[in-house]
Design a binder for these strands. Structure first.
Lengths: 179, 179
DNA sequence: CCGTGCATGTAAGCAGTTACATGATTTC
DNA sequence: GAAATCATGTAACTGCTTACATGCACGG
C-alpha cells in the first residue's frame, strides 16, 4: 500500500524476509545471489534498512556486542505483505539493462583487436559459470523456496550461452577473411 | 595517452569517430546501437563532448543556425589513436553487469506469481528481438566496419536465448508440481 | 500562418560506488 | 599475544536519470 516499493528497497526487504538478520547478513546474501542481476553496495543496504524500519516493514532490535554497535532485524507482517504486493505489481515489464565494457570495446574495435576481445569475454563467462556452480547455485538451493534456485540456474545458463557464442565468434574472426 | 579513457568517454568518442557530427547525432547513434549494452543520457553526451574537445580528441566548430546554438565535431588523429589505445587496453576483463527488476521479482516470488513473471520476461525479450531485427541490425549494417554488426547480432541472439529459456520455464512452472 | 514533430541542449537531484574505519574473533 | 580474518558500519564523491526549455522546419 502507500507507495509501491522501489526495486532496491524490495531487494533488501526480500533478503530480510528470506532470513537475513543484520545488515551484514543482507550484504552477504546479496553477494551470493541477487548481486548478479541487481547489484547493491553496503551504504544502500544500511540506508534501506533504516527506511524499512521507519516504515514498519521490518522490526529492528539493538544487539550491540561490547563496543561494536550492531542492529538485527526481522520482517513484520506488513513487510511480507508489501513484498508480495511488489512482486505482483502489474504494468509493463521493466526493461532489462545490460552494461558491458568489453562489448563496448568490441563494438569499436578494429579487425585485428576483435579476436582477443571475444576470447576475453568467453573466459570471463566461463569463470562466471564456475562461480555459479560452486557458490551461487548451492546457496540458492538452501533458500526457503525454489525460485532462487531457478534464477540461479538461469544465470548459469546465460553465461554458458555467452561463452559458447563467444567461442563461435572467435572461430569466425580467426578464419582468414573469406572473399 | 595521458590518462586512459573512461568507458563512457570512449563511447562518445567512438560515435564521433564512426561519423556522428553533433551531440544530437551521437545521441541518435547511441540509441540505435550502443545503448543496449552501454546506456548514456543526453547530459553525459554533451559533457563528454566538451571534455573531448578540451583534450584535443575531437575538434569542434560552431554551427549556430539563427538563434539555436549548435556545435559540430570531428575526430582528430589524436582522438582516433586514443580510441584504438582504449580498445587495446590489456588487463583483466571488466565484469559484465546485468540489472533486471523482473528477475529480481522472480527471485522473491511465491509459487503462484512465478509463471506470470516468466511470461512477461519472455514477451519482453521477444519484443527486443523484433527491435533488433527492425532497427538495430539494419543500422549496424550501415556502419563503417563490421564489428557493430557482430555486436548487434549477438544482442539479438542473446534475447532469443532468453525468450526461449523463459518459455521453457513457463512450461515447467505451469506443470503441476511433480512429486 | 499555425500546429506538430524534429533537433538541440541544460538544471537539479538522487542513486550508487569507492574507499575507508574500527571492533570482535579466530589462528598460530 | 600478534596477525589475520570476519563482522559492522559510514563519509564523501561522482555519474546518471528525470524532466524540462526552447527554436527550427515543414505539412496543411
Amino acid at each position: 500500500m502507500t507507495e509501491p516499493l522501489s526495486n532496491t528497497t524490495a531487494a533488501v526487504l526480500g533478503m530480510v524476509v528470506l532470513g537475513a538478520r543484520s545488515g551484514y547478513e543482507v550484504r552477504r546474501g546479496v553477494e551470493r545471489s541477487v548481486r548478479f542481476f541487481w547489484a547493491l553496495g553496503p551504504p544502500q543496504i544500511y540506508a534501506e534498512l533504516k527506511r524499512l524500519e521507519r516504515d514498519g516493514l521490518v522490526e529492528g532490535r539493538d544487539d550491540t556486542r561490547g563496543a561494536r554497535p550492531r542492529r538485527t532485524y526481522e520482517a513484520t507482517a506488513a513487510g511480507r505483505a508489501a513484498l508480495r504486493a511488489w512482486v505482483g505489481e502489474g504494468g509493463p515489464a521493466a526493461p532489462l539493462e545490460l552494461r558491458d565494457p568489453e562489448l563496448l570495446r568490441l563494438f569499436f574495435a578494429e579487425a585485428d583487436a576483435a579476436v582477443a576481445l571475444a576470447a576475453a569475454m568467453r573466459r570471463r563467462s566461463e569463470q562466471a559459470v564456475e562461480r555459479f556452480v560452486a557458490e551461487i547455485e548451492p546457496a540458492a538451493a538452501r533458500a526457503g523456496h525454489d525460485r532462487p534456485a531457478l534464477v540461479a540456474r538461469f544465470g548459469r545458463e546465460l553465461h554458458e550461452f555467452i561463452a559458447e557464442r563467444m567461442a563461435r565468434l572467435e572461430a569466425e574472426l580467426a578464419r582468414p577473411p573469406e572473399r
